Measured scan of single mutants.
Amino acid sequence: DEVTIHLGDKTIRVDGLDKELLEILKELARRGADEEELRKEIERWER
């Protein structure tokens, strides 16, 4: 499953996201997290 996250004018595509992680990323994005913060969160989950 590829998920596309839209952040204002930026788009991040991620393969096979965990549903819980997806919810966390959506919440972070709502709070104004930037792409770098979201990537760090994704990397934390992948470990």
Rank of each mutant, 00 (worst) to 15 (best):
I24H: 12
E23C: 02
E20R: 14
K19Q: 12
G32N: 03
V3A: 14
L22M: 11
A29T: 07
R44P: 00
E2K: 09
E35C: 04
I12Y: 01
K19E: 13
W45I: 05
E20F: 07
D34L: 08
K40I: 06
L7G: 06
W45K: 03
A29S: 06
I42S: 01
E20Y: 07
A29N: 05
A33Y: 09
D15M: 00
R30F: 06
L38K: 01
E23D: 13
E36A: 13
L28S: 02
L7P: 06
R31A: 15
A29V: 13
I5V: 06
R13Y: 10
E37I: 09
I5D: 05
E20A: 13
E23Y: 04
R31H: 11
R44N: 15
G16R: 08
R30N: 12
R13S: 10
E27H: 07
R31D: 10
I12L: 06
K19C: 06
E41T: 11
L21Q: 03
W45L: 08
D1R: 07
W45N: 04
R13I: 12
E20M: 11
R47A: 15
R44C: 08
G8D: 08
L7M: 07
A29P: 00
R31Y: 06
G32M: 01
D34H: 07
E23W: 03
L21A: 02
E20T: 09
K26Q: 15
D18K: 10
E20W: 08
I12C: 05
G8N: 08
K10N: 13
L28I: 04
D9C: 05
L21N: 00
H6V: 14
A33H: 06
E27F: 01
K26W: 05
K40W: 04
E41W: 08
R13M: 09
G32I: 01
H6Y: 00
K40V: 08
R31V: 09
I24C: 03
E46I: 07
L21I: 06
A29W: 06
T4P: 07
G16C: 07
K26I: 15
R13C: 07
T11S: 14
L38V: 12
E27T: 04
K40S: 11
K10I: 14
L25I: 07
I24K: 12
E43H: 06
R44L: 06
E46T: 04
R39D: 02
L22C: 05
R13H: 09
D34Y: 03
E46K: 03
D15Q: 05
R47K: 15
D34W: 02
E27P: 00
D15A: 15
G16P: 06
R30W: 03
E41C: 06
E37Q: 12
I12P: 02
L28Q: 02
D1P: 12
D34T: 15
E37C: 10
I24P: 00
T4E: 14
I24T: 07
V14C: 09
D34P: 11
G16D: 08
H6G: 08
E37W: 06
T4N: 12
L25P: 00
E41L: 08
D18G: 10
E41A: 15
T11D: 12
V14L: 15
D9Y: 00
R39E: 03
E2D: 10
R47T: 15
H6M: 08
D18Y: 06
G32A: 01
E27L: 03
V3D: 12
D1H: 12
H6P: 10
R44H: 14
L28C: 02
T4G: 08
L25T: 00
L22S: 04
L21V: 03
E2Q: 12
D15L: 00
K10Y: 07
A29F: 07
G32H: 02
E35S: 08
A29H: 09
L38A: 02
R30D: 07
E35Y: 15
L7T: 05
D15C: 11
L17D: 02
K40Q: 08
E23Q: 12
V3L: 12
L22N: 02
W45T: 03
W45Y: 06
D1V: 11
K10W: 03
E2Y: 13
W45P: 02
G32W: 01
G32K: 01
R13D: 10
R13E: 09
L7N: 05
K26T: 10
K26M: 14
K10C: 05
R13Q: 10
D18L: 06
D34Q: 10
I42A: 02
R31G: 10
R47N: 15
E2V: 13
V3Q: 14
T11Y: 01
E2L: 14
I5C: 11
L17Q: 06
R30G: 09
V14R: 04
G8C: 11
L38R: 01
D1W: 05
E37R: 11
L28A: 06
R39T: 04
T4F: 09
K19R: 09
R39K: 09
K26S: 08
E23K: 10
T11E: 13
V3E: 13
G16W: 10
R47M: 11
E2W: 08
I24R: 14
E23S: 08
G32Q: 01
L22D: 01
K40L: 08
E46L: 11
